[in-house]
Computed example of a mutant assay.
Amino acid sequence: MEAFAAIVLVLIGYALGSAKLINEGNEALVERLGRYHRKLRPGMNFIVPLIDSIVMEDTTREQVLDIKPQNVITADNVYILVDGVIFWRINDMEKSFYRIDDIQVALANLIQVELRANLAERTFEQAIASRTEVNQALLKTVNETAADWGVQVIRVDIQSITPPESVQKSMADQNAAVIRKRAAITAAEGEQEAAIKRAQATRTSVQILSEALRTNPESKEILKYLVAQEQVEASHRLGTSNNAKVVFLNPGVNSEAYAQMVGDIGTDELVQNNNPPENGSATA
């Protein structure tokens, strides 16, 4: 009876020792007597105790690896500080374990070397403007090497490119100058547009006034009254101003100007009135 109980305990221990549960999204590698034997898939798996051993269990899901900030010299000799991030996953668990010692260290060093080499061929402005192009170039180059490690790099993102303080100050001054230039151009265009609209409004007003004077003779007297009233108000404003000056108006000239505005005399007659004959001679 005791022997039977011992056999049962041994079988239970064997079953427990041989059963291996692999979680979804993971895979495991099994070696038998020191040599690669097989791969364990998610779910319940059984191995031979004391003969088989699990040497690696890792995820096949997408992972994120930060690239530490590093100094890079561009083609125009500008020192910049660059950092980034890569998204990757294991496609072949066997290759990732047997062909490379530390896959994350290897990926980080590979991306750093390729990043320096890529940016060294570009100027600082090109590096800033073509960040997407740099990401795509790095992705292609890194995957060519990472494929031998059983790894796929899904995406490479350069997070920041930081130039020295002197370059940052120069960029800030340049941006400020561009903003001031745009503001000056916008203001000039606004003033030009406003002047054009004022001229158009004045022209329209003159046309309306001229038409009213031609069609309604009584409007001439109204115009004379309005002009005289405006002159009185202007004189009053000059009188109350601290910097007021005495202005003498020629009634004759004003009368002739009013007459021309309302159409009482023509332009030729106005010229004659303003230029009297010499030596007291009169025009017949």
Rank of each mutant, 00 (worst) to 15 (best):
L110M: 11
V167R: 07
N23Q: 13
E125Y: 06
T74A: 04
A212K: 14
E230W: 05
V167E: 07
E165V: 11
V142R: 00
P251K: 12
N109T: 07
M261W: 09
V64I: 06
V64R: 10
Q207Y: 12
L29F: 00
A147L: 09
I154C: 06
I208E: 14
P276Y: 02
F97R: 10
G17K: 01
N254M: 15
A137Y: 06
L16P: 07
R89G: 00
I90L: 03
Q63A: 04
M261T: 12
V8G: 14
N250I: 08
Q168H: 05
A117P: 08
I111V: 14
Y79S: 14
A28L: 03
G263V: 00
T267N: 04
S205K: 11
A212W: 09
A201M: 05
R131D: 06
N216Y: 12
S160V: 05
K95V: 05
A212C: 08
V142K: 00
L238T: 01
L65C: 03
V8N: 12
E211A: 13
G252W: 09
V55R: 04
Y14D: 04
E133L: 11
I100H: 01
Q70R: 14
E57D: 07
T215V: 08
V78K: 05
V156K: 00
Q192G: 12
A195T: 06
V105Y: 07
L249A: 01
V246I: 13
V262H: 05
A120R: 10
W149Y: 06
T59N: 07
L65Y: 03
E121P: 03
D148F: 07
V85K: 02
V30E: 02
V142M: 04
K140D: 06
P42G: 04
V262L: 03
N91G: 09
M1W: 10
D148C: 02
L270C: 03
Q272K: 15
S235Q: 08
L50M: 08
A177F: 08
F248E: 11
R41H: 13
T162Q: 08
S53F: 08
E27A: 09
P251A: 14
R182A: 13
S130N: 13
A127V: 02
R131K: 15
F4Q: 13
I67Q: 02
R38I: 06
V178E: 15
I12W: 02
Q200C: 04
N23A: 15
Q192K: 15
Q231R: 13
S96V: 13
V134S: 14
V72G: 04
D173F: 10
R35C: 04
I12S: 07
T267R: 09
